[in-house]
Amino acid sequence: MQVVYFAWVRERLGLAKETVETTATTVTELVAELAARDERYAFAFSDISALRCAVDQELVEFDASITGASEVAFFPPMTGG
């Protein structure tokens, strides 16, 4: 699946998107896998309350399923308007 990052999440990882092979079934499980990779990921995912996520471009909670999803996005709370 494609994982995409925006704003300071993207900057902390130094990466806008990547393809991830995962057995995670929820966003929370995916976060745990990513955070375990290295220090940069651990830092970017250190405070989940400061993050929002979307699965296939729909805003969801972290307990949402990612089974069959093609794109998961992580970003800070939005500041539109």
């Binding site: 704003a7 979307a54 805003l59 709370p77 939005m78 500041t79 539109g80 308007g81």
Partner: peptide
């Protein structure tokens, strides 16, 4: 519409000044 655009539309603002750049916090 304005209330939802503020915090449910996927936009992020970064302020750039002479002193540096900061993401605007929600």
């Amino acid at each position: 519409l304005m209330d939802y655009l503020k915090s449910r539309a996927p936009f992020w603002k970064k302020e750039v000044t002479q002193d540096g750049a900061d993401w605007v916090a929600s």
